[in-house]
C-alpha cells in the first residue's frame, strides 16, 4: 500500500520557485492499478518520482508498505527501490549491454545470488515473451520489445509496486494495447500494485481501477475510473473523459431536428434494460437515434445516446421524466423540456 500525505515538491529554476507537486495526498491500495492523468507540466511525473524518491520531496510523507521513505538514508533507500519497479516512456535501457545483461544488472543491484541470475533472467524473459532476444542489444529491438525488456527489468526483484512513467506514450496503438495487457496480467497474477501516469485516457480506461486527475500540481478529482467517466465533476476531468466519450453531431443534422433532442447516459446494468423501448411503449412519442455509444469501463457498460423525440410536447415531457427516473442522467440538448 502506498500512502502519500501532504506531499510538496518545489524546484528552483532560473530565479523562479516552481511548485511541481502542491500538497498532494493520495492512497493507493495493494493490488490496485491507479492512474494519474494530466497534461504535461501538471506535476504527475514529479509526483511519481517522489514515490521512489528519485526526487526528494520538499515536504510531506511517502509511505510504501508502511515504511516511511522520506528522510531515509541513501543505503536504505536503495533497498526500498529494489522492491519498487519502474518503467519509462523511453525505456531507458543500457545500450551497451545485451537484453540479458540489462535485466542481470537489476538483479546485481539487489545482490541477487550470482549463480541463480541466469535462470532468473530466462524466467523473466519468458514472462514478457522475449526468450529469443536474450543476446540482442536494445538497438535491435522495436519499441514494444524494448518496453517489454523494461518491464522484465522492473520485475526482476519481485517488487510490490510498479511505477509506470508514460510507459505507452512512445508506442503505437496496437503495441500500447499489448503492453497494457501485459501490465494487467502482471497486476493480476503477481498482485503487484501499479501506479501509472499518462495523458492518454484510453490507457486509464483500459486498465485502471482508480484514477486521479492532476492540474497545476494538485489533484483536482479522484475516484473509481467508472465513476469518473460516468459523472466527471471537474472541468478538466470532463475535458479528459470527453476524449473517450465525446461525439459531435454535425450542425447540418442538428438543424434538421424538429423535435426535442435529449442525451441519455446509462450506467452499468441499466444499460441493458431497454429503458428507451419501455419509454416508447408507454408514451405517445416517436424516438429517433442520432448517435450512440457504449464504452466498457472496467468491464461495466457505460452508454451514451442522443435521440430526437417527436410528438405531443406534454407526452415528450413525461417521457423525459420517465427516463430521468430510470437513469438519473438525462440532458435536454435542444427543444422543449
Amino acid at each position: 500500500m502506498i500512502e502519500i500525505t501532504n506531499l510538496v515538491k518545489k524546484y528552483h529554476s532560473k530565479e523562479k520557485l516552481v511548485t511541481a507537486v502542491d500538497n498532494v495526498s493520495l492512497t493507493v491500495a495493494k493490488g490496485e492499478i491507479f492512474g494519474i492523468v494530466g497534461y504535461s507540466g501538471a506535476g504527475k511525473s514529479s509526483l511519481l518520482r517522489c514515490i521512489n524518491l528519485l526526487e526528494r520531496p520538499s515536504s510531506g510523507s511517502v509511505k510504501v508498505n508502511g515504511q516511511e521513505l522520506t528522510g531515509v538514508p541513501e543505503r536504505e533507500l536503495r533497498k526500498a527501490r529494489v522492491k519498487m519497479g519502474m518503467i519509462f516512456q523511453h525505456f531507458n535501457l543500457i545500450s551497451s549491454k545485451t537484453i540479458g545483461e540489462n535485466i542481470g544488472f537489476a538483479l546485481k543491484a539487489a545482490h541477487y545470488p550470482k549463480k541463480k541470475r541466469k535462470a532468473r533472467v530466462n524466467e523473466l524473459l519468458q514472462m514478457v515473451g522475449l526468450s529469443d532476444k536474450k543476446d540482442a542489444y536494445p538497438s535491435q529491438l522495436s519499441g514494444g520489445q524494448k518496453q517489454r525488456v523494461g518491464i522484465a527489468r522492473s520485475l526482476a526483484n519481485e517488487p510490490s509496486v510498479l511505477l509506470c512513467d508514460e510507459a505507452t506514450s512512445a508506442l503505437d496503438p496496437s503495441t500500447t494495447k499489448s503492453i497494457l495487457a501485459l501490465l494487467k496480467k502482471i497486476n493480476r497474477e503477481l498482485g503487484i500494485t501499479v501506479i501509472l501516469i499518462t495523458h492518454e485516457m484510453e490507457v486509464v480506461k483500459e486498465i485502471c481501477d482508480r484514477m486521479a486527475i492532476m492540474q497545476d500540481g494538485k489533484i483536482v478529482e479522484q475516484g473509481s475510473v467508472y465513476d469518473i467517466f460516468a459523472d466527471p465533476k471537474n472541468e478538466l476531468t470532463r475535458e479528459f473523459t470527453s476524449s473517450i466519450l465525446q461525439f459531435d453531431i454535425p450542425d447540418q443534422a442538428l438543424e434538421k431536428v424538429e423535435g426535442t433532442l435529449v442525451k441519455v447516459q446509462f450506467k452499468g446494468t441499466t444499460a441493458g434494460e431497454g429503458v428507451i423501448s419501455d419509454m416508447l411503449k408507454q408514451y405517445a412519442v416517436q424516438g429517433n437515434f442520432l448517435h450512440g455509444k457504449i464504452e466498457y469501463i472496467q468491464e461495466i457498460p457505460l452508454g451514451i445516446f442522443v435521440l430526437e423525440l417527436k410528438g405531443d410536447p406534454v407526452e415528450i415531457k413525461r417521457a423525459i421524466e420517465y427516463i430521468e427516473e430510470r437513469t438519473k442522467q438525462v440532458e435536454v440538448l435542444k427543444g422543449v423540456a
Partner: peptide
C-alpha cells in the same frame, strides 16, 4: 534517463559508474 533507471533499480553509485 538511463542513469535514472539505474538509480531506480537500486544500484549503488559504484555500480552505476562501472556498469
Amino acid at each position: 534517463g538511463v542513469i535514472e533507471a539505474s538509480v531506480a533499480v537500486g544500484a549503488s553509485p559504484w555500480m552505476i559508474i562501472k556498469d
